[in-house]
């Protein structure tokens, strides 16, 4: 035994092992550092927006229109515009996205035609958002004569988040086990009955999660709406969707001009006046708060559904 311990080559081996173990530890520390740095950026960003914007984060800011005087300007037109655009986006993207996903998962035969649809979905996810803006400018604004309206913006953002909704829905649908489908078929259900009565209800959690994540992406998208030509200075609201006389619902707002939160923020950031910088920070804090909240809800939903499901 003692002879082995005195073997000089053993020291070299031990030193090598020690060195590699140290390297291992060093990498753990480096990895943690980079990770913490990335997450610290998120925290610093949010805190800075809140601190900088604090003087403007009050009720007046939310209930005032844009103004030439920074201390009087607010985000009323912006958040109303964003909300209405999101309604259009959700109403368009949800049914189309879910239907497309169901087709691809439950119906589509495995052939070149299906492959083309799938490649297109993947490809659309990689197209820069500003290209969607150009598409909307050429197609919705001029060819369809929608003008620079809420409808044009809503449709554009719906196309933009379509791949997100499709991918999320497909994943959720795929997670439903085969046995459930086969049980329903065995009782004589048609394919649509299997889908509508079983597959869709069981995958609703995933579908909702995907929808919320898609909308949280759409809410912050600036470039495509700028390209359409959304105005950044608006001192009126779109016409109300609910009216006093029959049939109580009005869709005139779809054709109205609008502004949106990210556009308002961009407009304020690009001005040299420090007063507007404060407004930009306040608008940014609210916008970031909204996106983080939506993502938080989505993550929570996913976690809950994953825990609850026991096939």
């Amino acid at each position: 035994m003692a002879v082995v311990a005195e073997d000089p080559s053993l020291y070299a081996i031990r030193a090598g092992v020690l060195r590699r173990k140290l390297l291992d530890k060093a990498f753990v520390i480096l990895g943690l550092l980079v990770l913490v740095a990335a997450l610290a950026v998120l925290l610093a960003l949010f805190l800075d927006l809140v601190v900088q914007g604090a003087p403007r984060l009050n009720w007046d800011f939310i209930t005032s229109y844009a103004s030439r005087k920074p201390e009087k300007a607010g985000i009323l037109a912006a958040w109303v515009g964003t909300s209405l655009v999101m309604v259009v986006t959700a109403c368009v993207a949800m049914p189309i996205g879910v239907a497309a996903a169901i087709y691809l998962e439950e119906y589509a035969p495995k052939n070149w035609f299906t492959a083309i649809i799938e490649i297109n979905v993947t490809n659309l996810a990689g197209v820069p958002s500003i290209i969607y803006g150009l598409l909307a400018l050429g197609l919705f604004v001029y060819k369809f004569n929608l003008g620079q309206s809420i409808a044009a913006a809503g449709l554009t953002l719906a196309l933009l988040i379509l791949p997100i909704v499709i991918v999320a829905t497909r994943e959720a649908v795929r997670a439903v086990p085969r046995s459930i489908r086969e049980a329903a078929y065995a009782l004589g259900a048609t394919r649509w009955e299997v889908t509508a009565h079983h597959v869709l209800p069981y995958s609703m959690g995933g579908v909702l999660t995907g929808m919320i994540i898609g909308l949280s992406r759409a809410i912050g998208e600036t470039a495509p709406i700028i390209t359409i030509g959304a105005l950044s200075f608006i001192a009126f609201l779109p016409s109300p969707p609910i009216t006093g006389e029959f049939p109580f619902l009005s869709f005139a707002w779809l054709k109205d001009a609008f502004t949106a939160m990210p556009i308002q923020m961009f407009n304020w950031v690009s001005r040299p006046d420090p007063g507007f910088r404060i407004n930009a920070a306040a608008a940014g804090a609210i916008l970031l708060g909204m996106t983080l909240l939506m993502n938080g809800v989505a993550i929570w939903l996913r976690y809950r559904f994953r825990k609850k499901i026991n096939w």
Partner: peptide, 22 residues
């Protein structure tokens, strides 16, 4: 992973503000 996901969800105009002002 969810925290990283949130980092990726920050609106790009907010990142623009971050670049210019910070």
């Amino acid at each position: 992973k969810p925290a990283l996901e949130m980092l990726g969800a920050v609106p790009t105009v907010v990142y623009g503000y971050f670049a210019l002002v910070m």
